[in-house]
Amino acid sequence: MGWMRAPRTGGLMLLALIVAAIPWFLPNNFYFEMAILVGINAIVAVGLNLLIGYAGQISLGHAGFFGLGGYCSGILVATYGWPPALALLLGAVGVAALAFIIARPILRLKGHYLAMATLGLGIIISIVVSTEDWLTGGPDGMYVPPFTLFGWELYGEAVWYWVIGGLLLLAVWLALNIIDSPVGRALRALHGSEVAAQAAGVDTTRAKVRVFVVSAVFAAVMGSLHAHYAGFVTPTSSGFFHSIELVTMVVLGGMASTFGAVVGAAILTVLPQLLSGFEDYEMVVFGLILMLTMIFMPQGLVPTLARVCKRRDQRASPIPGVDEVDP
């Protein structure tokens, strides 16, 4: 039964079941759209969680990478007629290179300074895409053609749902494997104490740079796909508020919990739509829910709930060795 409880097998299977089951409960394309947006946000949050939750580094500029991916696809495909898959790949590689180059100086900073530097980076990207209107269409954004692969057009909500659902599983699988690999252990070590990790022989800078690049690539790829799915890309997608939203997803769902990031993304994407009936009070209710969650569950939803379940479990049938499970 042990494998059922390990996140790498049991958790992933549960997620796969949920992804497979959800379409049966979606009455129309609007709900499909919500599910797709949840998936896109979840993948970015899973990547960001590697950086925030495991490496303990804050990034307030991830929407910048998301936007860069989107604009890269938009410009190369719409303006220069590149094949979308190639544009997506180039966007990912370009963002990886950018992240790699700036990671070294940025990640030398700690705490607020690191947050400030990533914030600045995000804002610079956002300003560039909204002012260089000859290239990006300016504040109103630009049109992005549909995604095609070998002459087959990715079209319709159902198709997109399965693509994004598959990618979500892939992303979660990747993240769980990274966490359980030597790199992941190094990350967790440096999250605990960077000095201690260094003393134990961990190349902390290298570990941080790597995970920063990986999470930036997650964001860039999803930015590209989102641009193709939405059919346009605007500077809002690379803006400061989107960055904050992504960080909130990770924190709300539970830092250092891959499934937490998925849950956080789902809640933050769906909640505003559910609350649209409140009209003017929408933002107030939204803020209140977030505040109360953080006050009463400071570790985030999934870790807190997991601990509650575990405690109940142990009371019922104490199995030794179960508590090594780290959701």
């Binding site: 759209e33 109103d140 954004g141 346009f232 739509q273």
Partner: peptide
């Protein structure tokens, strides 16, 4: 604009409106 897109989809698919009168800004309209 993303929100406008989602809301439009909701109007079209979920609410099945007969006509849409809206879009205050060019970005949300497009």
């Amino acid at each position: 604009a993303d929100n406008a897109r989602t809301s439009t989809k909701r109007l079209l698919e979920d609410d099945q409106v007969d006509v849409i009168v809206g879009g205050s800004t060019t970005g949300t309209t497009m």
